[in-house]
């Protein structure tokens, strides 16, 4: 997928926002791909974590706004433990999620949960799921 990277497409405010929310200097990422190799969710992602990092570095807000990867991330912290640059990718993923969720957008709708799933599920699933996936 070719993307135009130019002053026209780089959204610097988005980059600032991600930096503010995550507290991480994502420019340190040197695209080694250790995160992608460590992620347990790899086969379910539309973008590898490394690609998410690249898109953030280039302020590609539009692409990240429709990306599934941040919402498939389970915050397991494996990438963070292994990142040779010491970046906390879980915080960066959270920041990308929050940029969207804070516009009052829900990734999942609590009221649309199947009654039988709610009956089966432990409370901790809903508490954590709503935290991560609802606004």
């Amino acid at each position: 997928m070719a993307r135009e990277i130019s002053l026209k497409t780089i959204d610097d405010r988005f980059r600032q926002k991600i930096k503010e929310i995550s507290g991480q200097n994502f420019q340190q990422c040197f695209q080694c791909g250790t995160c992608s190799g460590s992620c347990p969710m790899t086969e379910h992602l539309d973008l590898m974590p490394r690609q998410v990092m690249a898109l953030i570095q280039f302020g590609q807000a539009d692409a990240l706004d429709v990306a599934k990867t941040p919402f498939v991330c389970a915050s397991c912290h494996t990438c963070m433990v292994r990142c040779p640059r010491g970046l906390d990718l879980t915080k960066i993923m959270e920041a990308v999620r929050l940029v969207k969720l804070r516009r009052n957008v829900n990734e999942i709708e609590p009221s649309n949960l199947q009654p039988e799933d709610v009956t089966e599920m432990p409370q901790v699933a809903m508490v954590s799921g709503f935290r991560k996936l609802t606004s």
Partner: peptide, 13 residues
């Protein structure tokens, strides 16, 4: 408790 969870899942928010 499941009945309350089912009717008001937002409880967990």
């Amino acid at each position: 408790p499941d009945e309350i969870n089912r009717l008001y899942p937002e409880l967990f928010r």
